[in-house]
Every structure is written in structure tokens, then in C-alpha cells.
């Protein structure tokens, strides 16, 4: 399967990974090969087959509505690359 460098750039944009044009050129055939490899799945007749939801039969447990966590600001902020006054900070966002 052939993948255009422009597609690579679009996907990288969605995934928020900066890439140069040269990198996109290099990645395009690689991704094309992998996509070509996985496309053979199209051969399988899956009509009437349900997509897998739980690999081992199990049911979703529900928690009680009790406050058991939080109030750990020091732990939450301990690894922050940047922060002040109890906040994380990021470059100013204009909405």
C-alpha cells in the first residue's frame, strides 16, 4: 500500500509528533509496508462476528460513591516540568 508523505504529516499532526518533510518522506514507505501487511485482514469473512469486547469473561465492577482519594497535591505536582501556586503551567493558550 502506498502512503503519501502528506498523509504521514497529517497523521503525525493528529498524533502531535513534529516531523520534518524529510522524515515524512522516509516514514511514508515504512508505514505503507506496515499498512499493506495489516490489510490482509480484509480477506477474513467476519460477517455475523461480534468484535471482541472482553478477552476473558468478566464484568465491569462499580465502585461505591465514597471519597477515597485526592488531597495529594504534592504528589500530583511532584514531577511537573513547570508549575506555580499549586497549578501546572503551560504556554499561554488563546481560545
Amino acid at each position: 500500500m502506498s502512503v503519501e508523505p502528506a498523509t504521514v504529516k497529517r497523521v503525525a499532526g493528529l498524533a502531535r509528533i513534529a516531523i520534518t518533510d524529510a522524515e515524512a518522506e522516509k516514514l511514508a514507505p515504512e508505514l505503507g509496508n506496515i499498512l499493506g501487511f495489516i490489510e490482509q485482514l480484509g480477506e477474513v469473512d467476519t460477517s455475523g462476528v461480534e468484535p471482541m469486547t472482553a478477552v476473558i469473561p468478566n464484568h465491569l465492577r462499580l465502585r461505591d460513591d465514597v471519597v477515597t482519594d485526592g488531597d495529594v497535591r504534592d504528589k500530583v505536582l511532584a514531577n511537573a516540568p513547570q508549575g506555580e501556586h499549586g497549578f501546572f503551567t503551560v504556554p499561554k493558550v488563546i481560545e
Binding site: 503525525a12 508505514l31 499498512l35 495489516i38 485482514l41 480484509g42 477474513v44 467476519t46 461480534e50 468484535p51
Partner: peptide
């Protein structure tokens, strides 16, 4: 590479052909 593949197969218009189909095949494998 894997993030890009994953992003691609989940992106608009491809989800069913790739991801849903893969989960169906997974059912068959199980």
C-alpha cells in the same frame, strides 16, 4: 511508528475497516 499506525487506523473513515475488523478477527482467533 506505532503511534502513527495506531492514529491512522483509528482515524475518520478507517476505524471500521481496520479496528473493528481486527476485533472481529480477534473473536475468531479466540
Amino acid at each position: 511508528r506505532r503511534i502513527m499506525i495506531g492514529t491512522y487506523v483509528l482515524s475518520a473513515g478507517f476505524y471500521d475497516a481496520y479496528y473493528t475488523q481486527a476485533q472481529k478477527v480477534r473473536t475468531l482467533i479466540a
